[in-house]
Nucleic acid binder design. Structure first.
Lengths: 318, 318
DNA sequence: GTAAGTTATTAAAACGTTTTAAAGGATTGC
DNA sequence: GCAATCCTTTAAAACGTTTTAATAACTTAC
């Protein structure tokens, strides 16, 4: 089959130990021998066998990534960030994309069987924490990516409080005084409220569910600005607004969150708070690697950025 | 660390061989012994070590998946299909999401190191086939998923010819006679042309690039229907159409392809040809498993389905 | 009561790597 | 010239599993 250390050793009349040492750059092996060995390894296209290696080192250089299905480019870019960082560290990324909780179980089983050195979790699995017990019992390092854990594991997440401040702050700076916060992320909402209160503005209407939005807007004609939980959510809000004959941004300004690809197309032109998606993925993997190497790791908050487009404008003078 | 076969053997005063045999359901081991062993394994949460196993079997039960970054839900669902099918067969899915060709190299290297039993390729890497030479030299089974290979490897793909027929056929059945085919997929275009010619209609304008669409529409006022390469592409076409003051579908009908999530929202309501994305992923993994087990595998064409929404309507009577 | 056959178990080798302790050979210091 | 030191190499064990061939303990048949 493929060439092994033993084979290289045989061909060069040295011992397998020497070959292993040389290939791992150990300074004990003579320059000349080392060069010779590396040259042959290169020529014969030697690839270290991960089984033999893992059996010995008890490390797989494999990371698991578990995520619920996520539409849009959000998941895509995070995963790309994770994957590229993993690859740069010679780590493989074992992925399980699924929302169904029975499937999560089987994914975790596979992660264990394949001896992943660590696991990154996106999306919120708090509902089935018991399924992670086995993982925890094995003390496999875990990092939460774009979700916040209850405390046992480090996480990386956009600074949602600051993001909430950016969104509401932008609306306020345009002159809006009566806002509605359509935000079911606690921290984003807190950021909204913080800046609203700082400016001494009236308490905003809150409808985390965003359901009866049209009715609420009708009942509160003073409202001119809305913070949305996400850009996807902003689409629904836009529909609700338009359904009662109001225009964006002339009558109502909407600030989204995430900066998805569609936010910049003509139909939407959403002002939004961009999340550094790829960087989040990179950070998550970086943190996992550190955890694996035994270091302590602190959670990280990533910087959000305001992107102003055309869904926000100064309120009409009434 | 975690419990091993040896440990189980020691605790039960049997040999490791017996434990292994029992756990693998070999009929040679006595019913009673087998039950005892399985019970303890269960209790102590035994997980077979993939290194030991792989070293012996030379199989990793790992599949590689390489894809370019793809926006929207397309990639997402395909990957979910692959992953779930893999998990059901106790296979782990090693993923590399990247477009950059240097990164592809490093991903493939990792696939080799981790001893993947097979590889699924999405998106088109024909540009750097030389990088796959090592993979081919090692005779690692490969399946192309949603791309077509030159012939050496089986693929699974939507029947694009039929999809093209569906799109154009739909426009024709609405009464359109002068079409434009904005389709840079050869087979989809061929499907378009086939049905157009069958109906004896005039040759359509073709602008695979879709660049100067506005100008072309102005120059050809007879055109009332357009087939788009994808739904994403349909957005651009819609913009071009609207930029010269034409309305959809009153003046121009557009048929998309893919059935992405955004195609059904109010701003678009695209009539489109749906691809069975998840099924494509499932089929790809299924095929790979068969290839791994040594069977011969034929390429598969998956059935597209027409989804009629509001971007198409009968042409205005002129 | 022995031979043949059946059933259940096991010892040992193998897979490919890393690592430790030891050994061999050369050089240096005195 | 002998011991101490250094540099390079290696033998051997270990990691956890599977598998093959052998062994042991029983039955059954005659």
């Amino acid at each position: 089959m493929s060439v092994t250390i033993k084979e290289l050793a045989r061909l060069l009349n040295v011992s397998p130990a020497t070959v292993s040492l040389a290939l791992n750059g150990d300074s004990r092996v003579a320059e000349e021998t080392s060069t010779k060995i590396k040259a042959l390894a290169d020529e014969l296209d030697y690839v270290p066998n991960n089984f033999g290696r893992g059996l010995q080192s008890r490390k797989s250089r494999l990371a698991g990534y578990l995520a619920g299905s996520v539409t849009g480019s959000f998941f895509d870019l995070i995963m790309q960030g994770i994957g590229e960082t993993a690859a740069a560290a010679d780590y493989g990324l074992l992925t399980g994309i699924t929302r169904a909780s029975e499937k999560i179980d089987s994914q975790l089983k596979i992660f264990l069987e394949k001896n992943v050195d660590g696991i990154i979790l996106s999306s919120n699995y708090s509902a089935h924490v018991e399924q992670f017990e086995k993982v925890e019992r094995r003390k496999i390092p875990m990092v939460f990516c774009s979700t916040q854990d209850s405390g046992r594991h480090p996480f990386v997440i956009t600074d949602n409080f600051k993001g909430g401040q950016l969104a509401a702050g932008h609306l306020i700076s345009l002159g809006h005084r009566y806002l509605a916060c359509c935000n079911h992320d606690k921290n984003r909402l807190a950021g909204n409220l913080d800046v609203i209160r700082r400016h001494g503005l009236p308490e905003p209407v809150q409808f985390p569910e965003g359901k009866e939005l049209a009715a609420i807007l009708k009942a509160n004609p003073l409202i001119t600005g809305i913070t949305a939980y996400s850009d996807t959510h902003a689409i629904k809000i836009k529909h609700a607004v338009e359904s009662i004959g109001l225009r964006i941004p002339e009558d109502i300004s909407i600030a989204g969150f995430d900066d998805m690809w569609f936010s910049e197309i003509r139909e939407f032109k959403f002002t939004t708070v961009a999340q550094p998606k790829k960087e989040i993925g990179q950070a998550a993997m970086q943190m996992l690697l550190e955890l694996i190497s035994g270091s302590d790791v602190a959670s990280r908050f990533m910087e959000p950025a305001l992107v102003v487009r055309e869904s926000t404008a100064p309120p009409a003078t009434k």
